[in-house]
Design a protein around this nucleic acid. Structure first.
Length: 487
RNA sequence: GGCCCGUUGGUGAAGCGGUUAACACACCAGCCUUUCACGCUGGCAUGCAGGGGUUCGAAUCCCCUACGGGUCACCA
């Protein structure tokens, strides 16, 4: 059995999309599960769409997710180069071979003519398919067309009347009739191969054993198989994974606002890579048991092609949030604090570098909210009360403050605060006890007025810690103001 | 339009001829708690898109219909 080799072959047209990331993940998991190699190859033959930095961005995204690879443009490998545009001479060699054997031919239609032909077929209700008018031109005819200034592209001659079938690891046997496939371009006039051609040559030469890719490629597969056959290559095992749909059941489009679609956006929002990995693994794949929380390492152990679903996967954003919260709770406080600091800084709430004291303070604030954070960026909004200069009393808060016993509690609390030496949670606890003894109020009646008086809100994290973090002076000021108003 | 694929609760998703139709999210109720959040316990599909078959027996197999999706590029 040959060593398993899988690849992720992005075109460097932009940032790492969640769908591509999941394809890469599946390919990675399958390779690791089987002790194989994972390769990244850059499909940059559509030179007009390539964006500068696209390659780096793709790889940075994968790296952030925790995926690594064995061969690629950054580290080389025995099957390079790993960028299609650096393999042009290789493609040419195989095109020449097909040409010589009559399995491909020079085609002279211009893009304008093709588009016109296409539109006409569509208008007639026909399936668009290349006419093949220039399939069997004589050298003289070709010379004449070239004299007109036409530069030929190379088309693959699709055999007639064939049934092309292959065994897909996800879908089982898949069949296509060759008659539904028109002769397709494998090399553009300028010598750049098209995807279907480059993909076959590269996968074959790089000895890729398993091609795991999105379902949208399923209809490309018969074309590619034809090329494998024409060149005498052994096709790999194919596995077409289901598409990811948004919550309306529609294919995610780049413009779709309902879902955050790019990996670096998740990073910016404060998602943890392990939650994204876990979540993506469950997009179209299901583990055997009931457990659904897995580390990357665990996934490498249990992943299998057999358990990939045929039905499209729906992107459940609520579930992702829940999962991210799960991992945030599991993470160390220190890690979450480090992630949180930039958000505070961007919001203008703190300035860097942080003093030791301020860092400790921030750490305590973050600790208060760690268990309810579903994305780290939310920390700014959640912890708002610790950064406000003035208290703003909510409607519910005002109602609490209007209660009869409130002045007594507040007055007593304020007075007892004078005796405090260090304003820490323990000391505050003893102050509470004293106030309780003096006023006779306890529980909700005791704590709620104090909470509202200092924070303006009826809800919030642990009161003692909250007071301690807001600081003695501010607490006294706020209480004093209320006590004064009452009098 | 041709060809391919899919359809299980409010949501995601197991299920591969005989199950009380997992599990999770959400939601509701209760507990915990000064409040919120977390956590815990319980509730939540007489039903597997609809209609026909096959079978002693079907979410599971077959056919039709509906709906959704993919694809038919000198884009990957």
């Amino acid at each position: 059995m040959a060593k398993v080799r899988t690849r992720y072959a992005p075109s460097p047209t932009g940032h790492l999309h969640i769908g591509n990331a999941r394809t890469a993940l599946f390919s990675y998991l399958f390779a690791r599960k089987n002790g194989g190699d994972f390769i990244i190859r850059i499909e940059d033959t559509d030179t007009e769409r390539n964006v500068p930095g696209g390659e780096y961005s793709q790889m940075a995204g994968l790296k952030w997710l925790g995926l690594d690879w064995d061969e690629s443009i950054d580290k080389g490998g025995p099957y390079g180069p790993y960028r299609c545009m650096e393999r042009l001479d290789i493609y040419k060699k195989y095109v020449d071979k097909l040409l010589a054997e009559g399995k491909a031919y020079k085609s002279y239609s211009t893009p304008e003519e093709l588009e016109k032909e296409r539109q006409e077929q569509l208008a007639r209700g026909q399936a668009p398919k290349y006419s093949g008018w220039d399939r069997d031109l004589t050298p003289e005819q070709q010379a004449k067309l070239e004299a007109e200034g036409r530069v030929p592209s190379i088309r693959f001659r699709v055999p007639e009347g064939r049934i092309i079938s292959f065994e897909d690891a996800v879908r089982g046997e898949v069949k296509f009739e060759s008659d539904g496939i028109g002769d397709f371009v494998i090399m553009r006039p300028d010598g750049r191969p098209t995807y279907n051609f480059a993909c076959v040559i590269d996968d074959a030469l790089m000895e890729i054993t398993h091609v795991i890719r999105g379902e949208e490629h399923i209809s490309n597969t018969p074309r590619q198989i034809l090329i494998y056959e024409a060149l005498g290559f052994q096709p790999p095992q194919f596995a077409h994974i289901p598409l990811i749909l948004n919550q309306e059941g529609k294919k995610m489009s780049k413009r779709d606002e309902s879902i955050v679609q790019f990996i670096d956006q998740y990073k910016e929002l404060g998602y943890l890579p392990e939650s994204l990995v876990n979540f993506m693994a469950l997009l179209g794949w299901a583990p055997e048991g009931e457990e659904e929380i897995f580390t990357l390492e665990e996934l490498c152990q249990i992943f299998s092609l057999e358990r990939i679903s045929k039905a499209p996967a729906i992107f459940d954003t609520g579930k992702l949030k829940w999962m991210n919260n799960h991992y945030i709770k599991k993470a160390s406080l220190e890690r979450i604090v480090d992630l949180a600091i930039p958000y505070f800084e961007q919001a203008g709430l703190i300035t860097l570098p942080l003093s030791e004291e301020k860092k400790n303070w921030i750490t305590r604030v973050v600790a208060l909210y760690q268990e309810q954070l579903d994305q780290v960026s939310s920390i700014v909004e959640l912890s708002e009360i610790f950064f406000r200069q003035e208290v703003e009393y909510s409607e519910e808060g005002k109602q609490v403050l209007a209660e009869e016993h409130v002045p007594a509690v507040l007055g007593s609390f304020l007075a007892k605060l004078e005796e405090v030496e260090e304003f820490n949670p323990d000391q505050i606890k003893t102050v509470f006890k004293k106030v309780q003894k003096e006023t006779g109020y306890k529980g909700k009646q005791l704590f709620m007025p104090i909470r509202v008086a200092v924070t303006g809100e009826v809800h919030g994290p642990d009161l003692r810690e909250t007071l301690s973090l807001i600081g003695l002076e501010t607490v006294k000021q706020r209480l004093q103001k209320l006590v004064d108003n009452k009098e």
